[in-house]
Structures are given as structure tokens and as C-alpha cells.
């Protein structure tokens, strides 16, 4: 399982967000460059349609591949009240022929994306990961070098943390309290519940930039 919230930020404020995150987490950012392929089952395969993602980490000297399956979100009145989406997530690192493998099983490429940005991994009540990335689409199949932004000027921010059925309430609490620190710059909500950019972003960014510039890190 994982807990997840998402938000968007204007690219002009990303640098300020990075300064804020750096200050909050106390760790250095990692560069992020992930080629994501979304595969869907062909028409005759399975009793219901299924979907699986292949993630190729292009930041590694030798690109590494991961298969990711995102399951259903937790439901019920309790789940609706919490500000974080809790969903099942399974991942497996795989050898580099994973795409050919899923094609052979009868899966088809639905779409592919390239996420470029940075990530922070740190422990703050839970093992939290914050990624800030621009989402790009490929004009030609698999041509990651010629990718263009899907939403120019806007980047996606995602906060995730692994959880289990035993500890998810604590993880939800940790994620939502962390999100409060980011509130002046961006608002984070459950995926699919878009809340747009926040009006205070410009002022908060200006303040962070002037402060960040004067502080030796």
C-alpha cells in the first residue's frame, strides 16, 4: 500500500520549492528522469481489462526497469474523510526485456511519458518521497530525447509514502502534516481532485528565494 497526494506548481516557483524542501528534509535532492510506459491488456485477455506500468530509470548509469501495479483506492466513509489517498501498490524490479515480455503476454502500449525533475527521500514520521517533475510526451515512439512538456509552465508535485494496513493511519497523518509546510507554495490533494495553484505562491516563493539566497547551505 501507499499513501499519495498530488499538486501542481508553476515552473517559475520550482526553485523556491526546492529550497523549501531542502530545508525541511535536510537531505540533497536526487535527479529524476523516468520513462513511464503504461500498458493495457488486449481485448481478449483477462475477464476484465488490466493495466500495468513499466518504469525505466534513465538516471542510472545502466537504466533499471521496474514493473508497477497500482490497485484500487481504499473506500468507505473513513477513507473519504482522510485528506490522503491510500491505495494498493506492488512493484518489482525486472530485467530490461520487460516490455517485450508484456507484449508477448498480450499487453499493448497505451501511452508513454517522460518525467524529468528531482526527488527528495527522507524520514519524517514515515518514509516520505517528494517528486517534482515536468511530465513530457513523446512525439515519436520511445523517443525520450525529443520529449515535449504536456503542460508547459506547470510541474507536478507528488508526495508518497509506503504504508501497510496496520500503520496507514500514522502514515496518513505524517504525510498530511508534512503537506502543511508546503501550503504557502502549493496545495496537495488526492489524485484526481485538482485544486490548482495557490494564490500565495508568488509571495511565498519570493520570500524563500530572498532568504535562501542569503543562507549558506
Amino acid at each position: 500500500m501507499e499513501c499519495v497526494v498530488q499538486g501542481i506548481i508553476e515552473t517559475q516557483h520550482v526553485e523556491a520549492l526546492e529550497i523549501l524542501l531542502q530545508g525541511l528534509c535536510g537531505v540533497h535532492r536526487e535527479r529524476l528522469r523516468i520513462h513511464e510506459l503504461c500498458l493495457k491488456s488486449g481485448p481478449n485477455l483477462g475477464l476484465a481489462a488490466s493495466e500495468v506500468r513499466l518504469l525505466c530509470d534513465l538516471e542510472q548509469p545502466e537504466p533499471t526497469w521496474t514493473v508497477r501495479h497500482i490497485g484500487g483506492a481504499m473506500r468507505g466513509a473513513g477513507a473519504e474523510q482522510i485528506p490522503v489517498l491510500v491505495r494498493t501498490l506492488n512493484e518489482s524490479k525486472v530485467s530490461k526485456n520487460a516490455l517485450r515480455f508484456f507484449y508477448s503476454l498480450g499487453y499493448k502500449l497505451d501511452h508513454e511519458l517522460l518525467r524529468v525533475g528531482f526527488a527528495f527521500h527522507f524520514q519524517k514520521g514515515a518514509q516520505i518521497t517528494v517528486t517534482v517533475s515536468s511530465v513530457n510526451k513523446m512525439l515519436k515512439l520511445h523517443a525520450t530525447d525529443e520529449a515535449v512538456p504536456v503542460t508547459p509552465g506547470i510541474q507536478l508535485v507528488e508526495v508518497t509514502a509506503p504504508a501497510s494496513s496496520e500503520n496507514y493511519t500514522e502514515v496518513v497523518a505524517a504525510v498530511s502534516s508534512f503537506c502543511e509546510y508546503l501550503a504557502p507554495l502549493l496545495h496537495l490533494s488526492k489524485p484526481g481532485v485538482s485544486t490548482g495553484v495557490v494564490p500565495t505562491a508568488a509571495a511565498a516563493a519570493a520570500s524563500l528565494m530572498s532568504d535562501g539566497g542569503g543562507t549558506t547551505l
Binding site: S41, A48, V67, H69, N90, E91, S95, N97
Partner: peptide
Amino acid sequence: VLEAESSIQTIMEKLQS
């Protein structure tokens, strides 16, 4: 031949294909 972590078995189950 695909090499995977043992968690791939759970993914195969979840896919129901």
C-alpha cells in the same frame, strides 16, 4: 526469460490476466 523480484508474483495475481 525475465528476471524479477519475487513480488512480481503478486503483480501477476492482481492483473487477473
